[in-house]
Amino acid sequence: MNPPEILKSGVSGPAKVQSPEANRPRHLLSIAELSSDDIIRLLDSARSFAEVSKRPVKKVPALRGKTIVNMFIEPSTRTRMSFELAAKRLSADVVSFTPSGSSLSKGESLKDTAKTIVAMGVDAVVIRHSSAGAPKLLTEWVDCSVINAGDGMHEHPTQALLDLFTMRERLGRLEGLKVAIVGDIDHSRVARSNILALNKVGARVLLVAPRSLLPDRVEEMGVEVTGSIDEALRWCDVLYLLRIQLERVSESRFPSLREYTLQYGLTQTRWSRLKRKPLVMHPGPMNRGVEIASVVADEVEPVITGQVAAGVAVRMAVLYELLGGST
């Protein structure tokens, strides 16, 4: 069927010759599909966007006229706000979709919901979902860019990018950096994305957890594993703590929060004993008194809030890379 004349006139002008490749929307689904060059380029770009957030007028017109939908099927505060601010600072229009009270809560499928939203003329969907692979499936259903803001236990690529950004800004390099990731690796999309990203840029990764919190054959992802946080503390340049959830106790992953803190917590005793203190990072929200003692948390707080600030810059870089420059 031909479009009505009135619409045709809107696209008058010289015919553009573009390959189908060039027209295809671009996505950020995982760190796994990025090259180390891609990662470094995004980090470099984020550095220039970080400067925008420090201006009195925190806005550039890079994505003016673009529409971005935040589709957070799983609750989130910081990632969602971070994406929203990133989009707004690039002058894009942002719409938020929440599942409660929506067609999804009435039993509509994700496919139908997404198609409906995208039919309204959307350039990108930022999706957070409790099901691994949901962003990937979305790319088969909709004709716009898809950005993974965390899918189940799979990946959280922008989190890894902001973590690498923070490490690079604070320590001046990534290659050869020794990073220990402590905690519930099995359930952590943050850990998976960080392992992949750190490997790609030439950092070394040590996982610190009891075997019951590690996924099967995780060593094949190119990491080393230890059961001792004290060993890790002696070795690492960066200590990356993951959030521990009480429900893992009922799954028999470890005996109790108290036992976890004794074995794997960054306690005041462990911290004060250290002569050379590593950079301590946490994706938030922290469980003070569980994976990190409150006093230590206060001491390392500038780094952790620095991660949050980096999040906006990194997400600006991602949105700009996927949506910018095409008009």
Binding site: D151, G152, M153, H154, D216, R217
Partner: peptide, 15 residues
């Protein structure tokens, strides 16, 4: 299946 790919894909494994 529980194995390297379930670890990579973040899907719960059936050992």
């Amino acid at each position: 299946n529980e194995g390297f790919y379930s670890t990579l894909l973040g899907l719960r494994g059936i050992p």
